[in-house]
Amino acid sequence: MNDHTEPDQPATGKATNGNGMSRRQFMKGSGVAAAATALTQAPLLEASAAQPAAGEVPGMGPAAGRLTLNVNGQKMTTNIEPRVTLLDALRNYLDVTGCKRVCDRGSCGACTVMLDGKPVYSCSMLALEAQGKPIRTAESLVQGEKLDPVPAAFARYDAQQCGFCTPGFVVAMKAVFEQNAKPSPAEVERGLAGNICRCGTYEQMRDAIYALCNQKRRS
């Protein structure tokens, strides 16, 4: 691969990419002169850090700009184009690969992450929209060797076949428990309705979740 001069090439790992990228004048030829002037001077992040002066509209694009995301309690910075989705930013730019890319169209749930405590599809939002909000992925459910009870129950009850949908299910299930520590079967079903397992391991998932709910009920 020797022709990688395009700015959309991911920065490797968690490092920030060096510069040398030309930032095309945002809104070139735009009648909104104030906005354009402000934007060529400052990418969104710097602009939004300080309250922009009147008449300045924070924005960026289409070239890459610096973006810092708060992922699993860690600040991660990279250079990213506005068009990059949160899923691609996490997987391809920040090496956080717990969220999986399956349908990439907001219908299968494999990319589920928690944003500000709410389960969302990371494939159908821009990475830019997630800045300043805590993001939690399946990785947050492992502390060293210790698994969170939700993935532990999924493992114990063999609630996966290929396992590709599992991180999404586990994060969605965790969100259900955070909403209500003792959820009703209807609440569990509703909380997992946006996730699909194409291997069809729903029976084992049901067993795992049933066991989890029983544990909670006893405690």
């Binding site: 735009s30 509209v57 924005g59 830019l128």
Partner: peptide
């Protein structure tokens, strides 16, 4: 899997948003 190059902007007032959309 890639989207067309786009600009992104996040105005803070309705007037700014309307000016951008009008433009």
């Amino acid at each position: 899997d890639s989207m067309k190059d786009i600009d992104y902007t996040a105005p803070r007032t309705l007037a700014e948003a309307a000016a951008l959309l009008n433009d």
